[in-house]
């Protein structure tokens, strides 16, 4: 335990993720180069084990923040300092693509709003694949995948089917299973429960709780107020000002991490 505390010293305030003055502006060349300011000077920090929730109206730039952290979007300003498992600090806004690929493999997982996966690959392989890239044998990875599919109540006869043929809720469960299976240190969640029914949400929350107990830090977008209250250790408000999408973020501390 002692070593763990020491680990946290490298980032300001010893946090896992420190976003400072994040800025993302899109330049649409096809529309005469108009500029869309999606995120402006957003700053927040996440300690290890925290659950950060981004809130704000649609179009405020919440998804953009997650995509910038995952580097699906290239930030146009600011820093995203992330502390890796080996203590090194990486600025996800500017580090090499090679580094991002490595970090995606072992450190950060992203649950996107909609499942996007290779076509004609069976569900169990879609879920097993991230573990295989971590060097686990195919057999073991598929076993782990099946366990998760079971936990998420995906009927066994669908395990060999292609996720593209699944219902919206089932697809989202595959999406979650694929992210959770790699045991990320940081999990980015973009409205993961939007297409789930009550029971599926319960199962998802239970799965989330079990990986959080193992130390996974979460940053997510949730619209359900009850869920925000029960999950969040920190609420990060992202709001549009004067028609410009975002100007600043207000950070409210909800509850301390125990």
């Amino acid at each position: 335990m002692k070593r763990k505390t020491k680990r946290l010293y490298n980032n300001p305030n010893g946090c896992l993720l420190s976003v400072e003055n994040l800025e993302k502006t899109f330049c649409l060349h096809l529309l005469k180069g108009i500029r869309v300011e999606a995120v402006q000077s957003l700053s927040f920090q996440l300690q290890q084990g925290e659950f950060g929730v981004l809130v704000g109206p649609s179009g405020a730039g919440k998804t953009t923040v997650l995509k910038c952290i995952y580097r699906t979007y290239l930030p146009t300003g600011g820093t995203i300092r992330y502390q890796c498992s080996d203590n090194s600090i990486v600025d996800l806004a500017t580090c090499s693509e090679q580094m991002v690929l490595e970090i995606r493999k072992t450190e950060i997982a992203h649950v996107t709003q909609f499942l996007r996966c290779a076509p004609r690959v069976p569900a169990e392989e879609v879920v097993a694949y991230p573990r295989m890239t971590q060097g686990i044998s195919q057999k073991e990875a598929v076993e782990e995948a099946r366990e998760l599919l079971q936990r998420f109540a995906i009927p066994e006869k669908l395990w060999q089917a292609y996720p593209i043929t699944f219902s919206g809720g089932e697809q989202q469960r595959i999406n979650l299973a694929r992210a959770i299976v790699q045991r990320p240190r940081l999990l980015l969640l973009d409205e993961p429960t939007a297409s789930l029914d009550g029971r599926a949400i319960e199962r998802f929350l239970a799965a989330l709780e079990s990986i959080r107990k193992k130390g996974t830090t979460c940053l997510g977008i949730f619209h359900n107020q009850d869920m925000v209250r029960s999950l969040a250790t920190q609420v990060i408000e992202v709001r549009p000002l004067n028609g410009v999408y975002i100007d600043r973020a207000e950070i409210t501390h909800f509850r301390q991490v125990s």
Binding site: F26, L28, H29, L30, R71, T72, Y73, L74
Partner: peptide, 21 residues
């Protein structure tokens, strides 16, 4: 040049934007 998902979702160069669009 970039990560494939970034090229497809956040293309920077006018030509890439045209290509993706």
């Amino acid at each position: 040049r970039g990560l494939t998902d970034q090229i497809l979702e956040d293309p920077q160069h006018p030509y890439t934007q045209e290509l993706v669009a």
